[in-house]
Amino acid sequence: MDTPTELGEFLRTRRARLRPEDVGLVSYGARRRVPGLRREELAQLAGVSAAYYTRLEQGQSGNASEAVLDALARALRLSEDEHAHLRNLARPGRARRRPPERPESVRPAVRQLIAALDVPVIVLDRRSEVLAWNPLGHALIAGHLDPTAPDRPADRPNLQRMLFLDPHTRELYPLWEEEARRAVASLRLAAGRHSDDRRLAELVGELLMKSPEFADLWARHPVRNCVSGVKLFHHPVVGELELTFETLRTADESGQWMLMYSAEQGSVAEAGLRLLREAEVHPRRAAARH
């Protein structure tokens, strides 16, 4: 990814969302040619020269100090996730020669763990590619796909690609726009952390070309580390489900993480998951008899 360009675009979107009066500057009512703060105004708030800030936004200065980045984050009122994203864009890791990529695999202990859990679980890499799922995880988010697909690197589903390009997945989320915003915000954060990841850049490029909705959201530069929350599903087998999700990173250096769903005890959603579990088990028993 073109990190200097990404940095400039990110800074411009954050300038655009602030008005002078929001940050204590006097606006004299003159017609403004740009939305939000001007470069000069942001530079003043951050305590840097306008010329230096302009070079930074144009990608011509790759040595911004931590103090400058912190000052910009304060002036722009960035969230903690946005502040981290700014650092990633301003100080990208040096490009390094990578060995040929091998398909990622899930450790046997992790597979054993997710098989033992009685809730939907999906194991993902940093690109949102499905590396493994337990039967309930598969039944919840991708019952229309081959359950063995994650075992074949060439066929592995990708949650981002499914959300924007698969009509079955779109129908799964009654609040699809909310889910899409959350997904793009997480992908933005991953892209900033791993700017030299070729396959991640290719995923973004594919979605930009094939999904106008993704392209619109991507241009807004949302950034958020979505580690927990609530999602509403309209499942084709069991109907409405309101589930809590949590994400857990594996303890190794693989960058893999587990997406886990659960329902409130005694809720309609808990009954729905129980029905989904039974619907998943019975066909497999029937197949085993044949």
Rank of each mutant, 00 (worst) to 15 (best):
L248C: 07
L45R: 04
M260D: 00
E40I: 14
V130M: 01
P174T: 09
W133D: 01
L37R: 05
N88A: 14
H168F: 06
G24F: 05
R284Y: 09
N63M: 07
A251V: 11
L42D: 04
S267W: 04
E213P: 04
E101C: 05
R77M: 10
A190L: 11
G229V: 09
E264R: 15
G8D: 01
A279K: 14
S254L: 06
V123W: 07
V121K: 08
D70I: 04
S267N: 07
R77H: 13
M258K: 12
Y173I: 02
L217S: 00
A51Q: 15
K210T: 10
P35N: 05
S254I: 09
R111C: 13
A269H: 11
G143S: 08
R98N: 05
L124D: 01
Y52G: 03
R285W: 14
E6W: 06
A215Y: 00
S61T: 12
L189K: 10
Y53L: 15
R274Y: 11
P167S: 04
V110M: 10
V110W: 13
G255F: 03
N63F: 09
T169K: 10
R289S: 13
D22H: 11
A142H: 11
Q112N: 08
A73E: 00
G229K: 03
G239P: 08
S105A: 15
L140G: 01
V238Q: 03
P103Y: 12
R15F: 01
I122A: 00
R31G: 03
R193M: 06
G29R: 07
P147Y: 04
T13Q: 10
E278H: 13
Q44C: 11
R94H: 11
E9P: 00
L208W: 00
R220H: 01
L172T: 00
R39A: 08
M260E: 00
L42W: 04
G192S: 03
G47R: 07
L273K: 05
R96T: 14
P167Y: 09
L165H: 05
S195R: 12
A287T: 13
V34W: 05
H83Q: 11
R285C: 07
H290S: 13
A287F: 14
A263P: 10
L243Q: 03
A183V: 02
L42N: 06
H144F: 10
D151V: 15
N63H: 14
G205E: 13
T148S: 09
M209Q: 12
V227F: 10
R55N: 04
G62C: 04
A149L: 06
Q112H: 14
R188P: 07
R188H: 15
L200E: 00
E202S: 12
V119K: 08
V123N: 05
